[in-house]
Amino acid sequence: MGIQCKNITFGYSKDNILFENISFSVDYGERVGIVAKSGFGKSTLAKIIAGYEKPIYGEITVDGKPVSKKGYNPIQLIYQHPEKAINPMWRMEKVLLEGNVLNDYIIENLGIKREWLKRYSTELSGGELQRFSVARALCENTKFIIADEITTMLDAVTQSQIWHFLISECEKRNIGMIIVTHNMYLAEKICTRIINLEDMTFE
């Protein structure tokens, strides 16, 4: 079953519609690339699917049921700007505790250094922070991960490190992924399927 998005329409007001009638589904274990031009509303769509923004029309279901507002969100969004997604008043170990992932396996495989755990988010670089964002999303209750341009601000080596681990984890745990990226080489390398949203709205 997986995630089903039905006729998602969104705009900031009635006469300013951003996109209309977006429908697609993502199954467990799939890695679906989402492509569209800048300003189309890809990040907004990602937020809608993860439940942080309400569409004007349309619904999102997981396994046929709407996502409950209570408890752990099975759809985890990894954001483009880690510095905006991490509480600057928390030490990094608290950030990992929030996702219940403060374990050696994740810390070691994502290349998180022990001493970083005692620091605050402002004391780490973007690449270091993004490792924490990825770790935090990998709680055992996660069923789907939305990766919204998670490596665009990282160098190629770090990008490759993070993707290798994320993909191997998702394959192992049968997590479905929605991947927003502008890098077609990357999309072709890691996605099992690519959807172009611009083709969809005019159907």
């Binding site: 290349g111 160098d155 080596v157």
Partner: peptide, 17 residues
């Protein structure tokens, strides 16, 4: 290492930081 880490050039990840 940067060159080889590009998705089109093998997507190899050198360990460490």
């Amino acid at each position: 290492a940067l060159y080889n880490a590009l998705p089109q050039n093998g997507f190899k990840a050198v360990k460490g930081f």
